[in-house]
Design a protein around this nucleic acid. Sequence first.
DNA 1: TCCATCCGATTGTATTTTGCAACTGGTTGC
DNA 2: GCAACCAGTTGCAAAATACAATCGGATGGA
Lengths: 170, 170
Amino acid sequence: MDDAHRSGCPINLTLEVVGDKWSLLVIRDIIFGNRRHFRELLTHSEERISSNILADRLKTLLDQGILTRADDPTHKQKAIYSLTEKGIELLPVLAQMAVWGLKYLPVSEELGIRAQLLDKGGPELWAEFMDELRASHLGQPRRLPPHPDGSVGERLQRAYRAVLARRAAR
Amino acid sequence: MDDAHRSGCPINLTLEVVGDKWSLLVIRDIIFGNRRHFRELLTHSEERISSNILADRLKTLLDQGILTRADDPTHKQKAIYSLTEKGIELLPVLAQMAVWGLKYLPVSEELGIRAQLLDKGGPELWAEFMDELRASHLGQPRRLPPHPDGSVGERLQRAYRAVLARRAAR
DNA sequence: TCCATCCGATTGTATTTTGCAACTGGTTGC
DNA sequence: GCAACCAGTTGCAAAATACAATCGGATGGA
């Protein structure tokens, strides 16, 4: 995987690593959905990833140093997947894709709300979110002060649920 | 193409449009390499795209409203491909991918220099570049004042050639 | 006028990647 | 003891990609 690159262009190299239809969705679910186990990624996937594809993508993301895998002490068969710093720093890429998709593609109301917040919050909000991810995935102490309204992850989740509730009420 | 989406998530929808190994490279060459014709995209491609793939990608990018195609008045067989606003706004996505690739992947010196400048310049530089692209692809008047050192496109190109010259001198 | 070269593709075929469903060996909690 | 859960694996079909050759027409120079 590390040899025989098509070119040394940073965009090309990035596409060689995450330029398929699934890798970034897996990372999205880990970041925004807080999925840490194989089953969670498999069954809570909006897009219904199949298990062989998921297994393959997790393997290459591990090989690439974007994720790490650890045993779950509560269950001998469970594995916990965590983001590395390299994985956490894919958040701006995902955020830009979300902003672009929100503007130009037929995004559903409930799934668009997060993109709206990411757009409105901009790079500062992304940095705050990455700070949280470093705490939850790498065990690093928080560098930024906690926000009075809760973590970015919580705020995004809350906004998502609020849209769902509003929709159900109609 | 517009129906049967896997989900209404903006990231997923974006990946459905440009989440393959070639589409963003074509857009990269149009933006950063100023390629406007089929042959230019085909033969100046670092990654040696094959002609059927290029033809297919150009077709879907046209269908998606990311590019437009016009006849070249200087040659009856030539076609000029131009970015739409939708296409121009993919620049931040490409820039973030370039920044990430530069930091974490084995980028070559000559091709990394542009990513360095995009990283250093940040969103303001990207906005300046997008302003230039709106002028050259959409015929819009420039909103931002011209930079004394030349356009962003020129500065990136100049930096690239400077690295090549420095390398050749060694 | 002839002819090499260029133009945006298309065609055919081989290889690789993806998608789907069923299944595996083992663990856990009731 | 047994159903549900765990992280995957296997086999096969379908689709995407890669590669090389080729197409009909346009152009520019001799």
